[in-house]
Design a protein around this nucleic acid. Structure first.
Lengths: 238, 238
DNA sequence: CTCAAAAACGAGCGCTCGCTCACTATTCCA
DNA sequence: TGGAATAGTGAGCGAGCGCTCGTTTTTGAG
């Protein structure tokens, strides 16, 4: 499966539909990819069987753990909600924790892709726009995945907690690099490129962490994206 | 116990030490208050005994649940870490969930006080400064309490999850009210007072949710406060 | 249609959970 | 200082946990 794609041109992803059309980490593709990347954990031999079960497992996990938390969700709850038996669940898992590990894997993968896509662009303002759009759009498509990782990081081993933290730190570092480059060229004017980067990141996170806030205010994705980009420009004195 | 205090003058709280000196919800005061507000849950008769045990319980709970989560922390873990026996724990609790309920109670109380203090001030910019300072300062003193509530809201009943969400929404609404008032007077200029308010709130939250980020960058409380206030002014075109 | 391989099943295992309560130790004032 | 009130103890209870594995059902190539 080839998931490489040229995102270096802003025009390819300047609205949600265009981004979504070329975004490979969704639907059946995503579960096929999970099967390929975790064959050591998965007993099922055929991709169609495994990915159908994985789909059920993740959809139910996100539904249940958003309400009560991952640890509070028992495998019997999961069995009931997916319609799979205990044995069925364990045909695509070796242990409960694997679910969280696979989420970490996917979020890490997508975040790295987003950072790389932003860094490819040479114009700093376009670069920031790509970063914001790709993060918001992927965070919309994979909302339950990003949400889960944020709130369940503490269910992971120390080693994997660090991995999870580093996803956030790498994204801030990416934004900071772009902003600093703009400052060096005299395009941007900031007091602290770190503080601006950190602020952009948490506004991006807020979109997928608390979707109910924006739903209540009738703020849709493109409005939110516009708000954030406008705020970014204010903070950079553009 | 009288916990009312006049915070309407910015000068009373314009640095952390001044705020902390008049902040009643800390140290032994805090645990005495918890005893008073929860006598129905607490078997101990004497305030000194109960509040000493409550102190141990909350300190250990915050330590353990920050690492592994509240639900994963067993009462045997808590017993070991506090040095209290199982029965000792249950002298100041009727059930494990009570710990989370008391955290909600305190955070709710302090947040309301902060909002009221900000709304008392008539000058909008001072009002925002009071809001930012009081939220950051109380969030520093009570960091484990605010942190715990944010990440353990899903351990609560639906009714209490709503209460917890409303703390956040009320603070955003408070900020929005102040900003809108400034806009009406022609002092501030914003595209969306809600978006600015929401952004300020999540930057405030980030301080107590991810203290390790700022420690790693050697950003202290007053610097952070200054950053945020400067950002706020930029977003309001001041 | 046959039948071995693959998938699905779910009762049951060992264990840990939240919580109780009969008991002992300590406190404090008459 | 005696004794009732209060505090502290921890083994043990029933329930529910993650996970296994002997068994049954389904699948699909020959």
């Amino acid at each position: 499966m080839d998931l490489t794609l040229d995102l270096s041109n802003t025009k390819n992803i300047n609205n949600f539909k265009k981004y979504s059309d070329q975004f490979e980490y969704q639907d059946q593709n995503l579960y096929n990819l999970l099967f390929e990347r975790n064959q050591d954990l998965i007993k099922s031999k055929k991709v169609a069987v495994a990915s159908a079960n994985l789909k059920k497992v993740f959809e139910s996990t996100f539904k249940l753990s958003a309400k009560i938390g991952f640890h509070e969700m028992s495998l019997r709850d999961l069995s009931r909600d997916t319609g799979l038996s205990m044995g069925g669940l364990y045909s695509c898992l070796t242990k409960k924790e694997d679910i969280a590990l696979m989420v970490l894997d996917i979020v890490e993968l997508v975040s790295e892709k987003n950072n790389q896509a932003a860094l490819k662009e040479t114009d700093e303002l376009s670069s920031l726009e790509i970063a914001i759009r790709s993060y918001l759009y992927s965070g919309t498509i994979l909302q339950p995945w990003f949400f889960f990782l944020y709130f369940e990081t503490r269910s992971l081993s120390t080693e994997n907690q660090i991995k999870s933290k580093n996803i956030e730190l790498n994204t801030i570092a990416t934004l900071e690099k772009i902003i600093q480059s703009g400052v060096d060229k005299g395009i941007f004017d900031v007091n602290s490129s770190y503080f601006v980067s950190s602020t952009i990141l948490i506004v991006l996170q807020d979109w997928y962490l608390k979707p109910w806030k924006n739903k209540a205010k009738n703020i849709d994705l493109e409005q939110y994206s516009e708000h954030l980009f406008r705020m970014t420009k204010k903070l950079l004195r553009i």
